[in-house]
Amino acid sequence: MKNLILFILNNFHRLLFLALVCLSAKLLISNDEIQRSRFLVVSQEIAGRVHAFSSAIGSYLNLKADNKALVERIAVLEQELMQYEKYIETVNKDVNRDKNPVPPSVPSENIPSWRFIPAKLVHNSIACTENYITLNKGTNDGIREDMGVLSAEGSVIGLVMSVSPNFSRVISLLNPKSRLSCKIVSTNFFGSLLWDGKDPRYSNLGELPSHTVFNVGDTIVTSGYSSTFPEGIPVGIVTDALEQKSSGLNRLRIKLLTDFSTLRRALIVENTDRAEQDSIGKEVAE
């Protein structure tokens, strides 16, 4: 303690200089948009690199679990691939090959306008009131703001909020500022998913009309009404109905399918038709 006090006294002018520089920088960043955005990009890049380094050490120790999950996922995808191949075989048998030969591939109109970019989490939080995730992909990898993010298992994680050259910051579903348009898969009633800040395993689906039909155990999926996520991406399971508000809107308690505490890898969703969708939306709004 005595040494600490001596250190502070001997270097007081240096500490004062650092404090004044921090204060000046804070004032500068708070009062200038350009400086603030430059600072955010640089700080995000630095924080991302630090988290990437510590995450690299952690992920090496978890390779066994990652490999097991990847093998299981490959098995599921192989299964789906076999089903598609079987379907194409069936279609080919039914068509007159001499007149309308069907190429042994998926027809061009069925090529999805969605692209999935794999990424790795370098930082995650679930215990804060507002939680964010950092991924190791940025503008250099084609990532842009407002892209959706899924887990490796295919359930929703969040939305890209800001991007630097090598990293991107994602606003998690575990963030009260995050809203996701979802629907009940069996009845198609749709509402807005909003986290209440309490349990990271559960969220609330609100803004449902009072006549909403649902059952406990129903699956909640993305509604497809935004250009961020395709329709039908799993989000959670209905566990309970919360009390009806006087506004006439229902709220449902949803158990999230994503286990945010064990997230390691993610898929960033790119909508290749997004520009066209957004421009039509703007025209209609005007």
Binding site: H13, F17, V21, S24, K26, L28, S30, N31, D32
Partner: peptide
Amino acid sequence: YTIGTNMLAAVTVAF
């Protein structure tokens, strides 16, 4: 002048 610009420069020069 953006608040903080001259302050940051002057503090560094003073140091």
